[in-house]
Design a protein around this nucleic acid. Sequence first.
DNA 1: ATTTTAATTGACGTTGACGTAAAAGTCAAC
DNA 2: GTTGACTTTTACGTCAACGTCAATTAAAAT
Lengths: 129, 129
Amino acid sequence: MHYFTISDLAHEFDVSTRTIRYYEERGLLSPIRTESGQRLYTKKERAKLKLILRGKRFGFSLDEIHEMIALFDEDRTGKKQLEKTVEYGRRKLKEVDERIEDLLQLKAEMEALLSDFEKRLCEWEESGG
Amino acid sequence: MHYFTISDLAHEFDVSTRTIRYYEERGLLSPIRTESGQRLYTKKERAKLKLILRGKRFGFSLDEIHEMIALFDEDRTGKKQLEKTVEYGRRKLKEVDERIEDLLQLKAEMEALLSDFEKRLCEWEESGG
DNA sequence: ATTTTAATTGACGTTGACGTAAAAGTCAAC
DNA sequence: GTTGACTTTTACGTCAACGTCAATTAAAAT
């Protein structure tokens, strides 16, 4: 299996190494270490970082993202655990759905604004321009 | 015409008056004043606040939102101004589109995760449960 | 072998987005 | 006409999410 160094990930996702270490401080990432103490990231850790950054783009706090990532990490042996996980997942999914709805609304508003401006621009060109 | 007080808006949108004043400090809102200095908000200002809060929900910074709001405020006399506004609007709209795309991706990933968990839950119930 | 580049921890600094407290003025109600 | 709710400005506080040294160690390149 192949591992990523911290700067591999930093370059790939265009974040600082400090940021990646900070996410570890906050318990969002847990890379393994070489004998000398350097961090090595598996594909799974990489996937987690990807999810963190995606979450951030939508204004989720690191605490919220932490909860989401728990879906990756928890050992979901046991039925109870699994049920809890699924229920939490459904809730979060609903939140995401609401955000999409909200964004579509924003888009519609902006489009209305834009088409109004464009109309005015046309009028301008027809009459005086 | 009817005006809103600062606490009207604070209650309606569930933000603090401090927050509303802060948005004014940052140039995002510009209420008129009574003779004694109290703030009064028009429907337009209210709409701007709504837009600010919507923007915030998607992780836009106040600076970014400020630029968006300029679409409301700028005096768009003159063709040049109008053209610039429309062009900027198109760019921002594209960004919003990308965010929607991104969110749909997140949704898909979460759904995949969830259905995997649900499958496991079913297996659990069939076999041992 | 040694220079260059990259990694580590630790600690302090910064920025954005407000919260909070204080002092003073204003408005509606009683 | 005074109580009480609300408003104003000024100013300092706070918390998250990093940035930025600094000192040290390890790895890669020449």
